[in-house]
Amino acid sequence: MLIAVIVALAVGTYAFRVSGVLLRDRLDLPAWARALLPVGAAALLAALAATAALTEVGRFAGWARPAGVLVGVLLAWRRAPFVLVVVAAAGTAALLRLAGVP
């Protein structure tokens, strides 16, 4: 039963991935539609980042995480190196939790 769940999830997930990749070849998209694809991907990634920053299982994630993310985004905005962005975001959230912020 466990194997069936894993295989079903694996096959379905791969089907999503590979069908997008293979479809791209089959479709003769006009230039404007090709230009819109990365816009759609950016919207998806922004939605992922925003929900991951603010929510946990459908509810507010607490203040430490969004505060950490905000610090990271501000650093990225000021063109700080990517490594610093990631470490500062994690460090801020960790320190806030250490200080008792949920």
């Binding site: 816009v39 950016a42 922004a46 920053a53 994630a61 993310v69 962005v85 990631v86 470490v87 960790a94």
Partner: peptide, 28 residues
């Protein structure tokens, strides 16, 4: 270790340059 904050921050940092485009910014 605050790793739950690292992923959204990393994603947004990677997205920032593409947000200079108006359509992308609005969609995001």
């Amino acid at each position: 270790f605050g790793l739950d904050a690292a992923f959204p921050a990393g994603l947004m940092a990677l997205l920032l340059p593409s947000l200079r485009d108006r359509d992308t910014r609005h969609a995001a």
